[in-house]
């Protein structure tokens, strides 16, 4: 099995876990786990854009008041349930972004001519975003992007990248991916109703 296929399967399980998770605390834990996975696989994490996303979606959700009124801004009530629901949705969105980073870090190859074209697009997009800080600000933008692309082209020959993408998963990779899936299952068990019955403080979590 190709390593990228294995990563895709593992990512699909994580997405399933994300969709099935309903409580805010469980989704928060899964989000943290996914961010760790993405960082471990060489993806950058910026706190500020995620915080902005979290706050904006949470507040956008308060447009439809729901549950206990926490406070009011003029005549606009901020309700607890609407805020919690908003945070839940924001976490889901953030998780999806990092799951896609995690899946794409294996340089996923879609079969066929169109698949190769899409893979190439992902490759250039990845290279451009990771090297964007190198862009010369004083140069006109088109010329600067052009220089950056020429640099990428010289640095990595496309044919070489295509060859290295076709690596196969070894036993160790399968064990690692199974471990990732088992952590998601473990998180579900930790936040299950049975655990809440045993540890009463767990029931207080949102």
């Amino acid at each position: 099995m190709r390593f990228s296929t294995l990563r895709l399967i593992s990512g699909a399980f994580i997405i399933l876990g994300l969709i099935l998770s309903q409580s805010l605390s469980l989704r928060f834990c899964i989000t943290i786990f996914i961010i760790i996975l993405a960082i471990k696989n060489g993806k950058k994490f910026r706190l500020l854009p995620n915080i902005i996303l979290l706050i904006s979606i949470s507040f956008a959700n308060t447009l439809t008041p729901n549950g206990l009124v926490l406070f009011s801004i003029g005549s606009y009530p901020i309700t607890l349930k609407a805020l919690t629901l908003g945070a839940n949705k924001a976490l889901l969105l953030i998780s999806f972004i990092y799951v896609s980073h995690y899946i794409m870090s294996s340089k996923l190859q879609i079969p066929g001519k169109i698949g190769a074209l899409i893979s190439l697009q992902f490759y250039y997009f990845d290279q451009l975003t990771s090297k964007w800080h190198l862009i010369e600000k004083k140069r006109p933008l088109i010329e600067a992007i052009d220089q950056l692309l020429i640099g990428i082209e010289e640095e990595n020959d496309i044919n070489f990248i295509k060859k290295t993408d076709k690596e196969y998963a070894i036993k160790k990779d399968i064990i690692i991916e199974l471990f990732h899936i088992s952590i998601i299952i473990l998180l579900f068990l930790i936040f299950s109703d049975k655990t809440k019955d045993i540890f009463s403080f767990m029931a207080l979590l949102p």
Partner: peptide, 10 residues
Amino acid sequence: FIHKSIWYAQ
């Protein structure tokens, strides 16, 4: 970009 790019022409 297409009109001006050397990379695209290459």
